[in-house]
Design a protein around this nucleic acid. Structure first.
Lengths: 115, 115
DNA sequence: CCTCTGATTCGATATCTGTCAAGATAGACG
DNA sequence: CGTCTATCTTGACAGATATCGAATCAGAGG
């Protein structure tokens, strides 16, 4: 039980939505899965890799990780199920892109720019 | 495989650090556990409950959830291990508070205010 | 000291998760 | 139509996780 802040001292000075009003159970059910999807190092990197480009082919994602293609697919599915990315097959290849609304929802909760 | 964005159309217009440069493997290892900790509805609500006040007694947290005290402790430990909160015993009671640096780290990654 | 209360830890259990290898699909292209 | 390549799905499995109830620990106060 470390102690990095004088317990009685000043409160969290970082202001963000999370610190304004307790997240409701309903919001928590909706938002937690997105955090969960980003809660694995591989998926966090995948999401970032996809987010840095308009769209990314799976054939570009696969070689960026030392994992089987089955595992890559599995993680991409997690990200898609969480609503963070979307995908489309175009010919032989499948392309993924980020869903900005999803990032915005998380950002709104954590962003310090809310006040 | 739904299709909510015209694949070839404009890229993610929401700008945040995540979309600038792919998260490095090292950063992913450091940040993913924090997202993971927030990736459970119970813990997300707990973190928010703690973040909305300077500090919160466990005796206030416990009745806010329909869970055994053992389970509450378990989740609080997860949040603490992830570096999101810290705690201190004061007499009979234990108090938790948010670690603003941790929220700031996540915020920096997702915030739209970076450009 | 003894006991009471708040909180954590422990043991058990059911479920979930990350991973791989192998098999199944979907198009492209002869 | 057959085959090749890219991707996804399935089956299996070891390890993690959420949960409870019981046991333990830490102070407070007689």
């Amino acid at each position: 039980m470390t102690n990095s802040a004088p317990a009685g001292a000043q409160p969290a000075q970082t202001c963000c939505a999370l610190t304004k009003i307790p997240v409701s159970a309903a919001d928590a059910e909706r938002l937690a899965p997105m955090f969960k999807a980003l809660g694995d190092p591989v998926r966090l990197r995948m999401a970032s890799l996809i987010a840095t480009q308009p769209e990314v082919c799976v054939c570009e994602i696969t070689p960026a990780f030392d994992l089987s293609s089955g595992t890559i697919s599995h993680h991409l599915k997690s990200l898609r199920d969480a609503g963070l990315v979307d995908s489309e097959r175009r010919g032989t290849f499948v392309y993924y892109w980020i869903r900005p609304e999803a990032l915005a929802a998380l950002s709104a909760l954590l962003s310090v720019d809310c006040c």
